[in-house]
């Protein structure tokens, strides 16, 4: 089997100190391999978003080791100084409410991620159009997010997450704002991406209708992994 793209060893996160300390995540181990779509399940406050933030290098763990795409990025301290660059190159984010920039068209929303990575303007546009076509929203490229349907907006957001060909995709409730039909389409799309691009995809969700579409699930409760499989 290939090496895991996401690997957590004894990762913990505690907010605050002393008696007021909140242990959001406790000694968590996790591996996600290329081509896998893993669901992060659990009730509110169980630590799902904290786990996503830790893997996304947005929040610093309290202890443990974090490997991303074969590189140890945290081992008691951050080993990479430029976490922004790391996110830009290796991680794609998909949000619950798509989080498209309201002042950019669909095509510009995708191109902006490429632009930030230093891809020249014309090339960024070309690749953005190709991605939108791939996700079957190419005809909406010049449309502002406020005029896209929920499903279209989410596909544009997925295109943006894929723009820099990340190997790790973190999705936070990507189907919460969609009806069951569109939710199924988004999950099919993520599955296709995982296979075609050999990416590791972690999906935080409460949506029971998509539980069956994961290669594996990790269930959290009170900051601990209570089941995985």
């Amino acid at each position: 089997m290939a090496a895991p793209l996401v690997e957590l060893r004894g990762i913990a996160k505690t907010y605050g100190r002393g008696e007021t300390a909140v242990h959001a995540l406790k000694d968590t181990d996790l591996q996600v391999y290329p081509g896998q779509v893993v669901g992060l399940l659990g009730p509110s406050g169980s630590g799902k978003t904290t786990l996503l933030n830790l893997i996304g290098c947005i929040v610093e763990p309290t202890r443990g080791r974090l490997n991303l795409d074969g590189e140890t990025v945290y081992d008691g301290r951050w080993l990479r100084s430029d976490l922004r660059r790391l996110r830009l190159e290796k991680i794609g984010f998909i949000f619950q409410f798509h989080n498209l920039l309201p002042f950019l068209t669909a095509e510009e929303n995708v191109a902006v991620a490429l632009d930030l990575a230093g891809v020249p303007g014309a090339e960024a546009r070309r690749r953005a159009r190709a991605l939108l076509d791939y996700l079957e929203v190419g005809h909406r490229g010049a449309t502002l997010p406020s005029r896209l349907s929920g499903g279209e907006a989410q596909r544009v957001a997925i295109a943006r997450a894929l723009a820099n060909r990340p190997r790790i995709i973190l999705a936070d409730e990507p189907t919460a704002a969609l009806d069951s039909g569109r939710a199924g389409m988004v999950m099919d799309l993520l599955r296709r991406l995982a296979i075609e691009q050999q990416a590791a995809i972690l999906v935080v969700t409460h949506d029971e209708t998509i539980f069956g579409r994961f290669d594996g699930t990790v269930t959290l409760r009170d900051g601990r992994v209570v089941s995985s499989g």
Binding site: G56, I58, R84, R85, R87, L88, E89, F93, F95, N99, L101, P102, F103, V112, A113, L116, A117, R160
Partner: peptide, 16 residues
Amino acid sequence: VKAIATLKLIGAPDRT
């Protein structure tokens, strides 16, 4: 604020 947070999350540097 939300747009700025998104930009930061997807890797926009402070100068942007």
